[in-house]
């Protein structure tokens, strides 16, 4: 079982999006005036939609150490402060949402298996609901999804740090928040968790071999 720390910005709906289950045990770190989160024992740091990027900027060295230790970061929000190593998110409202479409660019780990990309593009027939703005990724990172204009909106970065950085351009993902939608964003989230679990098992085997 993976152990995940979820950054908690005091939003009322967060606990519904990250309920512990057989695959992941979630622990919440609530932001306050003296935010000093504990990541010890965690495999994944999750920064969900609606997070506090002033607080994250103040703890960016702790995040960097977490990644340097080989762990995983999942940020499903727009990080307007520079706390994510190697990658920048930029808001942009100049493109009409009716023109937004997504395409898979590179899926090395099969995280889009079974995911209906139209569930990310459309909600009740309306396009452009999921991501906002775009990511300027580390050029060596792998872009999972790009938008109509070829801009990265989901990235898996295994090069900026010894850890794994999974980013969406504020496209919300969660564990249980999309239950009931076959092939929807919930499946993408679970596939990403599966990838991190496999990656962790691979590292454990290598460590044992060494």
């Amino acid at each position: 079982m993976l152990r995940a720390v979820v950054i908690d910005n005091g939003l009322h709906y967060l606990e519904h999006s990250f309920r512990s289950n057989d695959a992941v045990a979630y622990r919440f770190e609530r932001i306050g005036a003296e935010f000093d989160p504990v990541f010890d024992g965690a495999d994944i740091l999750i920064v969900p939609n609606g997070s506090d990027h002033i607080a994250m900027l103040r703890v960016r060295e702790k995040v960097a150490r977490f990644l340097d230790a080989g762990h995983a970061l999942m940020c499903f929000d727009g990080w307007f402060t520079n706390w994510v190593p190697g990658n920048r998110w930029i808001m942009d409202n100049s493109r009409p949402t009716r023109d937004v479409r997504y395409a898979v660019v590179t899926d090395r780990h099969g995280v889009m298996d079974g995911v209906e990309i139209d569930t990310l593009i459309f909600s009740h027939g309306i396009s452009g609901w999921w991501a906002c703005g775009y990511i300027e990724p580390n050029p060596a990172a792998h872009v999972l999804l790009a938008d109509t204009w070829g801009r990265a909106i989901a990235v898996i970065d295994e090069v900026s740090t010894p850890g794994t950085i999974i980013l969406t351009a504020s496209g919300p993902l969660g564990d249980g928040s999309y239950d009931g939608e076959a092939g929807g964003p919930g499946l993408l989230y679970h596939n990403l968790i599966g990838y991190i679990a496999r990656r962790g098992a691979h590292h454990e085997r290598n460590r044992a071999t060494l």
Binding site: I54, L57, F80, T81, N82, R88, W89, I90, M91, D92, N93, S94, G133
Partner: peptide, 14 residues
């Protein structure tokens, strides 16, 4: 129409 200032994103200080 409201526009967004791209230079305001990716800040190192607040």
């Amino acid at each position: 129409t409201m526009t967004v200032d791209a230079d305001a994103f990716g800040i190192d200080r607040f």
